[in-house]
């Protein structure tokens, strides 16, 4: 069966979606990813959708689910590289992906995740808080 590979990079999990998703594939991804978060105790999940040309309400819901589930397991989720046409369409559709962090590319996404982890540590020490 077709599967989307999940890479582990230090405390983060990295997923690059290269194909257009159909529902079952997206559901499998949600399942695999959450299991991986639990198994590896990942602190962050980065999903690169720069090659995805269609995100409809189902796919949007999967992204939201992944973010909420990861959050319960103490991992931040960031979706990177959404195409302008996809973003315009999602807004028109009425889907704002509340609770999902976004970044322009993998590099900025990684930076954001690192800051998130840093923020948790520093918040505990109460030193400073950063914008991101």
């Amino acid at each position: 069966m077709e599967r989307i590979p999940i890479l582990k990079m230090g405390p983060f999990l990295l997923v690059t979606i290269q194909v257009d998703l159909y529902d079952r594939l997206a559901l499998t991804l949600e399942n695999d990813l959450i299991n991986m978060v639990s198994k590896t105790e990942a602190k962050g999940v980065l999903i690169d959708i720069s090659a995805v040309s269609i995100v409809d309400s189902f796919m949007g819901r999967i992204l939201g689910n992944i973010a909420s589930m990861s959050k319960i397991m103490d991992a931040a989720t960031v979706v990177v590289g959404m195409q302008p046409a996809v973003a315009i369409t999602l807004v028109e559709l009425g889907l704002t992906l509340a609770g999902v962090h976004t970044a322009l590319d993998v590099e900025q996404g990684m930076e954001l995740l690192r800051n998130k982890i840093g923020q948790i540590d520093t918040d505990e020490e109460g030193l400073y808080d950063s914008f991101i």
Binding site: D23, I54, D56, Q83, P84, V86, I88, T89, E92
Partner: peptide
């Protein structure tokens, strides 16, 4: 245009589901 194509295909994707 690409934006209009994306809107059309997304709508179709919802309806076909």
């Amino acid at each position: 245009s690409l934006v209009n194509q994306t809107k059309l295909i997304t709508a179709a994707s919802e309806l076909v589901r």
